[in-house]
Design a protein around this nucleic acid. Structure first.
Lengths: 153, 153
DNA sequence: GTCAACCCTTGCATTATGCAATGGTTCGAT
DNA sequence: ATCGAACCATTGCATAATGCAAGGGTTGAC
């Protein structure tokens, strides 16, 4: 059992490190929270600020400032909601969308290269085992209202 | 291939979330960087500050302030190095050691519970596949002088 | 004995974060 | 219709984490 957890932790560290590297390779200045914000906003209809905050699991004030910085960097745009003057809609600019796509592609490539070194049998076993694992997580944590970080795609 | 990376990313997110939860369950106030610092210092002979900084991959000034905070919290102690007056040795207090052990145990338990829901076959396949993966990483990134985050235990 | 290299520290700047207070907006109940 | 509760974004204040640059003490080699 100790072996399982140890290998899981090592693999997780590895993926995190590769992800961080993919980000750094694409843009030295963008931080991880900033990327996370952009990712949440990508491929989704415009979000109002409070929904973004909820999605990220942070305080609204944090989301406000994050939006400030990303807007200043030209990656995000604020639009008034025509249906409600107290709300504001956030969406990515074309630059923001491009950046997200580039980083994601890069990460995909980094991980793919790693997995490419794996024997085919291990590769199949990996998918099978990890699917089981996230399924088990879904079972253990049925739905995570208070754990926004736990997104089991 | 897309499947493999997607499942890897999902699993990594899961492990990270569980780790964060284990920490929060044990101590609401301790931050992740602080825990990481304590972990580096645990089970190791006293480190001088510059070595700690190198181990963490941060600027020495960051390590100084981290040590300040952890010392203020009673988790870490500074000792003059009898062999060199310009150096300083950092080590955990008994409280610090206890805290690290508690958090690690908790994390271990969280992950173990998850893995416990896995069919035995998947469990074996998981270890095998993850071992292959970290082995592949070792091959792809022979030794990581500039990637202190990449510890393939 | 001098000077370069090393070590820790501190000042300054920036990002990320939460809590509390505030002013504007919406909506339902009266 | 209006009044108050709920909602929304924002800002002030505090703290942690981080890097860069400068500075003062210490060591060691030459």
């Amino acid at each position: 059992m100790r072996e399982v957890t140890a290998s899981l932790l090592a693999a997780s560290r590895l993926i995190v490190a590769l992800s961080a590297r993919a980000l750094a390779d694409v843009d030295e200045t963008l931080t991880l929270p900033q990327l996370r914000t952009l990712v949440v906003l990508a491929d989704r209809p415009p979000l109002k600020l409070s929904d973004l905050a909820a999605e990220l699991g942070v305080n609204p004030s944090t989301a406000v400032r994050m939006a400030d910085r990303l807007a200043a960097a030209g990656l995000l745009a604020r639009r008034p909601n025509p249906d409600s003057r107290r709300e504001q809609l956030l969406l990515l600019t074309p630059d923001g969308r491009d950046l997200v796509r580039t980083v994601m592609d890069r990460r995909q490539a980094e991980i793919a290269e790693l997995v490419g070194h794996l024997p085919a049998a291990d590769r199949a076993g990996l998918v099978q085992a990890l699917r089981s694992l996230t399924a088990a997580a879904r079972h253990t944590y049925p739905d995570s209202p208070d754990h926004p970080g736990l997104r089991l795609g």
